[in-house]
Design a protein around this nucleic acid. Structure first.
Lengths: 195, 195
DNA sequence: CCGATTGCCATAGCAACGCTAGATATGCGA
DNA sequence: TCGCATATCTAGCGTTGCTATGGCAATCGG
């Protein structure tokens, strides 16, 4: 059945097209500009086609978010790899994370502000999500000093996420951003000597 | 002109009613359930009345958010006051902050996820916002060790905000929440001994 | 190579959204 | 009591996410 295979290929191709166009549109004009009508127009199909691929708009956002996590994990891994000492690796990871959020604001929104229906709680957690978290775990492990690496990674991730979001929404002064990141890195690395 | 005074009183009363009802509705069913129609129905007026008090829905959310910041500042102040050592005061502040976010999830959303049009950047920053931030500054000052208190307060706020947000959206496992907060407090307090 | 059938897709529409213009009712001052 | 000003409502605009229906085109059996 060659025709059926071709159809599935075309469907898969269109599936990816929807995700790509949604992401481009979001990065260009923000998620509030990503309506099902505009999206349908851009992919040159009618609205109902979107719903034959995704359960709804939220599912499209979630698909974009998943793509974002994969890229984030890659960026974090690259940052860690190009560093020498554990301290430098941690600093590189934090800066890579902040840079990713700054360069892809709407993508970051999809990943961590919108799209609640991604299963973060195990066991159904998608691989890209686990990979991104694993990078935090690897980077922080050197500073564990007997403490739980998972907890430390969670604190590191949450902290840098909070700083990034509050900075991006104007809640924290933008010109202190670098100093805040440096302070955070100090705290994450320094507390190993204590307790 | 007594009639004019009475009218202004009634307007002010209705103004507060709108904010109160919006907040109640949001806490009961989430902000997506707070539509101008439902809000108008609850206050027993028609939709356009809302727009004679506020520029739009966002302005109503911002008003609720402002109320939230005032309450948050009060809670944080109370927490700091009932603590002995600086370390206990910092821990009490962090836990009070996390508790506030947990008990008033929609209010917290209005303050820090929605409502972008609140002027955080000085000089037009509303007093409740400054008061809440001042509590962080006071709590962290004892651990400054020569470092910039403002930066440290910003890092503390951003960090706990990130942990709270990711926990509440299910991005971080809920059962580790307390351990994460304890670790954060350790880091905020411990780094004073370094550098 | 033709006709029946299957599956895909677009048109059109629903209910609800934020917001507003114009008409109506209310209550004041003279 | 009359005329005016102010306050409020009714009705509607354009847009949203989503879907039921109906027609067209590609596919398969002969």
């Amino acid at each position: 059945m060659s025709t059926q295979e071709r159809r599935e290929r075309e469907r898969a191709r269109r599936h990816r097209l929807i995700v790509t166009v949604a992401r481009e549109l979001a990065e260009a004009e923000g998620w509030e500009a990503v309506t099902t009508r505009r999206l349908a127009e851009r992919i040159e199909y009618s609205q109902p086609v979107l719903y034959s691929h995704f359960a709804g708009k939220d599912a499209i956002v979630a698909a974009v978010a998943l793509e974002g996590f994969a890229e984030l994990a890659a960026e974090l891994g690259k940052a860690r790899a190009t560093a020498g000492t554990p301290r430098e690796a941690l600093a590189a990871l934090i800066h890579a994370y902040a840079g990713f959020a700054r360069l892809n604001p709407s993508l970051y929104d999809a990943m961590l502000t919108l799209a609640v229906d991604l299963p973060f709680g195990r066991p159904g957690t998608p691989a890209p999500l686990q990979a991104a978290f694993a990078e935090f775990r690897e980077a922080i492990a050197a500073f564990a000093a007997g403490r739980d690496t998972g907890i430390l990674a969670e604190v590191a991730w949450g902290s840098v996420h909070g700083l990034v979001t509050l900075t991006r929404s104007g809640r924290l002064p933008a010109d202190h951003h670098e100093r805040r990141l440096a302070t955070l890195i100090d705290q994450l690395a320094a507390s190993a000597g204590r307790r």
